[in-house]
């Protein structure tokens, strides 16, 4: 069952369209909201959390519209991207205060449990001002989890975390998703989403560019035309050899090396080593020329 439903949702500020006609369903498990900065991911999360009304369309979370519905936070937890917290409190005080704001029957026990989940028990009595960005992020997650919400929304949760903290947060979100909760997190980093979630929603310029199983979208990405830059002992000879291969759709001699365009990523990368060896060419460097996230997105949204 999907807990977050958007039907033709748009949001604009004056003449600027931030969210353009998005329909999506998000169910239990971990879903990544992927897109470059400025794609509208935060705007979308703010709408889902009830901090922004849609200009048009229908949006429900657990069957209720979130706008002007503070009661929905009994089922929803939000980890905002904004680093600001009540920094004069200790981590434990912050999470306990949040538990009290939720009017939980045993706020102290709930806070202990949430702090345990994010593994902050050792540092819970330090003031939040002394926390690193990653620790602040984790204590915010503890506060958002304190009432054991069915839906957890996280805006760029990995920002400012070191690799170890990042892995730990990924494990945490993964286990929360596996326990049947609906976890929706935004990220502009492909690898974060790839490691964490089977289901992704790709947003570009306010639109939903792709949606569904990560592996299917990844295949779509890898079977698209790729451009490589190859530097060898004889670029011209390799070019002549490559152009005869079905997987190669174009070669160009450039001062930096041989630019090769391929329609089949897998076949080309498998064949290249054998072809250079047979032609007695020394392969010096092989670089993907268009691996930036933007080019992947540009491909995804191309008509």
């Amino acid at each position: 069952m999907s807990t977050i439903e958007l039907r033709n949702v748009s949001r604009w500020y004056g003449n600027v369209v931030a969210i353009n006609d998005i329909s999506m369903s998000v169910g239990s498990g971990v879903t990544g909201l992927l897109g470059p900065n400025g794609a509208g991911k935060s705007t979308l999360l703010h709408m889902i959390a009830g901090f922004l009304p849609p200009s048009r369309g229908e949006l429900t979370v657990a069957g209720q519209p979130p706008w002007r519905n503070a009661g929905l936070f009994r089922t929803v937890g939000l980890v905002p991207e904004h680093p600001s917290v009540y920094a004069f409190l200790t981590g434990a005080e912050f999470v306990r205060a949040t538990a009290r704001l939720h009017e939980l029957p045993d706020p102290d026990a709930a806070a202990r449990r949430a702090i345990g989940i994010v593994q902050m028990a050792d540092t819970q009595d330090r003031k939040i001002t002394t926390y690193s960005k990653g620790m602040r992020q984790r204590i915010k997650v503890a506060a958002a989890l304190v009432h054991n919400p069915e839906v957890l929304l996280l805006d760029e949760p990995f920002n400012g975390m070191d690799p170890r903290q990042r892995l730990h947060m990924m494990d945490l979100l993964h286990s929360l998703g596996a326990s049947g909760r609906t976890i929706l997190f935004s990220s502009h980093i492909l690898e974060e989403v790839e490691r964490l979630s089977g289901t992704i929603q790709v947003m570009v310029a306010g639109r939903l560019a792709a949606s569904g199983d990560f592996r299917a979208i990844r295949r779509l990405m890898t079977s698209r035309p790729h451009v490589f830059l190859v530097r060898t002992s004889d670029d011209r000879l390799l070019g002549a050899t490559l152009i005869g291969r079905p997987a190669v759709t174009g070669v160009e001699l450039t001062p930096r090396g041989l630019q090769v365009r391929t329609s089949d990523y897998g076949t080309f990368t498998r064949e290249l080593a054998g072809l250079t060896r047979d032609a007695n060419i020394r392969l010096r460097e092989l670089l993907p020329a268009d691996e930036s996230l933007e080019s992947v997105f540009a491909y995804l949204i191309a008509p």
């Binding site: 959390a49 901090f51 503070a70 009661g71 929905l72 936070f73 009994r74 929803v76 937890g77 939000l78 905002p80 904004h82 600001s84 917290v85 009540y86 912050f94 949040t98 704001l101 939720h102 009017e103 915010k140 506060a143 958002a144």
Partner: peptide, 12 residues
């Protein structure tokens, strides 16, 4: 400073 979000993201 934006910290109000933590208060408003509760059912209070």
């Amino acid at each position: 400073d934006g910290s109000i979000v933590h208060l408003l993201a509760t059912p209070v």
